[in-house]
Design a protein around this nucleic acid. Structure first.
Lengths: 137, 137
DNA sequence: TCTTGACCCCGTAGTTGCTACAGGCTCCAT
DNA sequence: ATGGAGCCTGTAGCAACTACGGGGTCAAGA
């Protein structure tokens, strides 16, 4: 299949596919006489693996390691579990951080009663460093 | 105060302070005879505003607007509220997205029982596109 | 007085993961 | 033969910094 078909088959966009090839994540495919890239089922599977991993938030380097394991089925899969677990922890940390952030934002937004910027509680809250250090009694 | 002191006073790092100046977020300070930047209380307050806003996840452009309002107390603060509310919605959307992601990751991580990569459920799950399309009965 | 080390200056390039050109080729249908 | 869709390459842009190289300045200690 040509690059456009592969893009449609996987949901990746064409520029992204070429990008993955450039950084060595997706192997260089054969070329047609007209120098068009020609992909097979293995490429499609690999790209699906990559896209799915990206959707789960794995970095390119993590995906590189995961693909490497996938290419060497005789290795120990502890590394895969370590990567996934570590990533899960990061996601959980990010959720916790965003939740705190949401609460603080909620407090700020709730304060605005309209009127002039000079009296705006939103702007005041942002200027007031104390607010982000726990003194919101 | 010199740039290093300002950095310590605000928690921003020196390169970041120069960056904010370069993009016009922080006004150019006076210079000493030796061409060192010399900051006053107004700079410190503005930088605290910026850092606090960044910690809350506002983009540079949003902060530019918020600072602009802060510089013009006679304007209507509806814009500040609009920015903050919009941002809050984005944070909530991000939390929801990450939560879904965490659940899917949790399912994947829980599957690994050690052993060879060839049998690894983590790698399998990433390769299996069906998993991310709702078929996790 | 000299030197050492901490601090400051500037400009540019690197980071992550793409995305968007510009300028040109190929292929297929009409 | 012509038009448009699709492909090619290489490079530049995005956000928000961060890091680096190569240099100037300043205060304290030997």
């Amino acid at each position: 299949m040509k690059i456009g078909e592969l893009a449609r088959a996987t949901g990746a966009n064409i520029e992204t596919i070429r990008y993955y090839e450039r950084i060595g994540l997706l192997p260089e495919p054969d070329r047609t006489a007209a120098n068009y890239r020609s992909y097979g089922a293995a490429h499609r599977a690999r790209l699906i693996f990559i896209r799915h991993s990206r959707e789960l938030g794995f970095t390119i380097e993590e995906i590189r390691s995961l693909l490497d394991l996938s290419d060497h089925p005789e290795r120990d899969c502890a590394e895969a579990d370590r990567i996934a677990t570590g990533h899960l922890e990061q996601v959980e940390a990010k959720i916790a951080q965003l939740t705190t952030l949401r609460d603080e934002l909620g407090r700020i937004v709730g304060r605005c009663r309209g009127g002039l910027a000079g009296d705006c509680r939103v702007i005041e809250a942002l200027a007031d460093h104390a607010l982000c250090e726990g003194s919101h009694a």
